[in-house]
Design a binder for these strands. Structure first.
Length: 687
DNA sequence: CGACGGGACGC
DNA sequence: CGACGGGACGC
């Protein structure tokens, strides 16, 4: 099937986009300006098409040869052979315009790398034309995958990854001799899928014949190609969230490589004009559509991929503070009861996966305590329940094992988290479809699930989902590897915001997970969350409304400088993201009297500063984790704080790293100087 | 028409 | 330990 080297599907054109703004609506060429906000609402008319680029078209082919083929998969508006302007020579490629992206998708799936035109040398390449995906509001999540068996085919890799969602594309990196380099890229269209895959595979799944587990992380932004207008203009939604600080190579000036290029979500969807206020887009730095629905806008989630991305917010109402607290309680309680023994259960087949991370043997986690909050517990009484869980297109797809997902509220989740999450993470025979039948999803809501009557009242479903997703993954993965711990944390870092206006829940989830992961089920959560968030957050109900819209939160670096952290993307910035600013304004407007809101995060951060510094010696995230893991019984206080600190610290460190990469050769050890220097030179924020 | 510059820790 | 695919906007 599909191309070995060119990927399963052809979604990989985001690489050379034009820098979006080039309002020259000349025909429909690239650079076509779509109905961005403020722009003319051409989302209804001119925008209703999806253009594909088709490569490997025999130069002898005519439209008549091509059109029929494509018409089998959708309504073809146009077939445009590309010829050299001067010579009139057929360039061996063409554009196919479909009326809908659905048709286009189908065509890609059916034809890309699967059909060879008469006279053709190889199968045609079918993918969206440059800029199309963005134009259509699509976002892709590309993962870098390393430590692949060099013999593995794209197909096999796809099989492994398809457990976490439909794989849009697999690209194997090859050397001059076409030999696999042992690494490649896997794309998903949904962030949660990507996260699931990372969480479940990174450092855990070892391919047969390999002595190291897969490396799975969000891909770096693609190396800009000569002649490219500029780095990627979108996508790489995940590169931000990456953990490893040392890797941070983006200037802190926000708009990192994949900076501000937020494509309007679903621009092509007539029914749901982007109804977000001016506040939404401005500063979304390309992570993904984060516009939050104002009122049951179901389309959003389609791209956003559900949890935590787009539909983070309450639909109309506001979150209740209590819920946050109770949530934390719940997690807390859930995790406490079971302090799993350190018995490590490593499959005979599973190779010890220590590798790079150098984590101590995993403390075997017990599933129970970590079981995610059951969907059933997701406040069904909450308003967002009806948000109409976005029907992820992917779930409908041909997910082999994942199969049918009940069309329930948990759909998103299930899509993102197919039941087939491998239990046997070690690949013994290239059979990703490991015998794995557990329906973790429907796994009995054991004890913890019902134990707590406490229910978060109005958590964003996305947040809940996200959290659950994580926990579940964590749980499952951890059954077989310690790496999972790291992975988990990694993931948390990506999605959790240290302190926030956004959600206490995420924090709690993070902490809870940490506890669970580390086995140290002490009892910190209550402390941290209740004392800080619960209390401080209390003042505003509507605050949460705003919260739901902004993933940015303000924090203080150890040096006392303010910085901003995005809980969803993991990005950190020195300057206040406009999104947050607007969010705050909105809050002010709504609350009027609650001017505290803003300072809140700072307070908390400040409160944590000492802890962070204290932990500095640990030098890095992993070190801290390690440290924690070794702690037998972390103190209540210490643990909780530390837990947070980790997350926050990472965010902060990213900034440091950024600063460093910005040209300041400093290390973490002297990061303070680095940071300050940088800030000094670059219009310090908050000083 | 033109289209990414700079620089490259220290372990 | 590996980092991005051939060609790309004609009429």
């Amino acid at each position: 099937m599909s191309g070995e080297g060119s990927g399963e599907y052809g979604f990989n054109t985001y690489q050379q986009q034009q820098q979006q703004q080039q309002p020259q609506l000349s025909g429909q060429k690239r650079g076509f300006s779509f109905s961005g906000r403020g722009g003319s609402p051409d989302r209804f008319d001119r925008g209703s098409f999806a253009k594909l680029f088709v490569g490997s078209v025999p130069r002898t082919a005519t439209e008549e040869d091509i059109r029929p083929l494509f018409e089998e998969h959708g309504n073809v508006i146009e077939v445009a052979l590309i010829k050299d302007k001067k010579t009139g020579q057929h360039q061996g490629c063409c554009f196919i315009k479909y009326t809908t992206s659905e048709d286009a998708d189908q065509a890609i799936r059916a034809l890309h790398n699967q059909h060879t035109l008469p006279g053709g040398i190889g199968p045609i390449q079918v993918r969206y034309a440059d800029g199309e995906r963005e134009r259509l509001g699509a976002v892709e999540y590309k993962l870098f995958v390393g430590s692949l068996n060099k013999q593995a085919t794209a197909k096999e890799i796809e099989e492994i990854f398809s457990k976490y969602g439909r794989v849009e594309d697999v690209y194997l990196m090859r050397d001059e001799n076409k030999q696999s380099r042992g690494c490649g890229f896997v794309k998903y269209s949904n962030r949660d899928m990507a996260l699931s895959a990372i969480n479940a595979l990174n450092g855990i799944y070892t391919m047969r014949g390999c002595d190291q587990p897969l490396i799975v992380r969000f891909a770096d932004p693609k190396r800009p190609r000569h002649g490219d207008s500029r780095g990627p203009t979108f996508g790489d939604p995940g590169s931000g969230p990456r953990l490893d600080p040392p890797g941070a190579r983006f200037p802190p000036n926000a708009s990192v490589p994949m900076g501000d290029r937020m494509p309007p979500p679903n621009a092509w969807r007539p029914m749901h004009p982007p109804n977000m206020g001016p506040s939404s887009n401005a500063d979304n730095h390309g992570m993904e559509p984060q516009w939050f629905p104002r009122s049951g806008d179901t389309t959003l989630a389609i791209n956003a991929g559900g949890p935590m991305t787009g539909i983070g917010g309450p639909i109309d109402g506001c979150f209740k503070v209590e819920s946050l607290t109770s949530m934390s309680q719940q997690n807390f309680n859930q995790s406490v009861p079971h302090i799993p023994p350190l018995n490590q259960e490593i499959s005979p087949l599973q190779k010890p996966v220590q590798s790079s991370q150098e984590l101590p043997p995993a403390h075997q986690l017990h599933p129970e305590p970590q079981a995610p909050m059951p969907y059933s517990q997701i406040p069904s009484q909450s308003s967002f329940r009806q948000v109409g869980q976005p029907q992820l297109p992917l779930s409908a797809g041909k997910q082999g094992t994942s199969g049918q997902f009940p069309t329930t509220q948990s759909q998103i989740h299930q899509s993102a988290l197919p039941a087939s999450i491998p239990r046997v993470l070690h690949d013994t025979n290239f059979q990703p479809n490991t015998p794995f039948t557990t329906n973790q999803q429907q796994a009995p809501p054991s004890v913890h699930q019902r134990q707590q009557p406490l229910q978060p009242h109005q958590q964003s479903p996305s947040q809940l989902a996200q959290m659950l997703s994580h926990q579940k993954q964590t749980l499952q993965a951890s059954l077989h590897s310690s790496q999972q711990v790291f992975s988990q944390l990694q993931q948390q870092v990506q999605m959790i915001q240290p302190y926030s206006q956004t959600s206490t829940m995420q924090q709690n989830a993070a902490i809870a997970n940490k506890q669970q992961s580390t086995n140290s089920t002490a009892a910190p959560i209550g402390d941290v969350s209740s004392s800080t968030s619960a209390t401080t957050v209390a003042p505003g109900i509507s605050q949460n409304t705003a919260l739901a819209k902004c993933n940015w939160t303000e924090h203080l670096s150890p040096e006392g400088f303010k910085y901003y952290y995005n809980s969803v993307t993991g990005e950190s910035r020195w300057e206040k993201p406009e999104e947050l600013a607007l969010s705050e304004k909105q809050q002010q407007r709504l609350l009027g009297q609650h001017s505290q809101t803003q300072s809140q995060p700072s307070m908390i951060s400040a409160h944590q500063v000492p802890q962070m510094q204290q932990a500095q010696p640990q030098s890095d995230f992993q070190g801290q984790i390690l440290h924690q893991q070794q702690m037998q019984q972390p103190s209540f206080q210490a643990y909780g704080v530390t837990g947070h600190q980790n997350v926050q610290d990472v965010g902060y460190k990213q900034l440091q790293a950024s600063a460093i990469s910005a040209g300041d050769p400093g290390r973490y050890s002297n990061g303070i100087h680095t940071t300050q220097d940088w800030m000094w030179k670059n219009k310090p924020a908050g000083v």
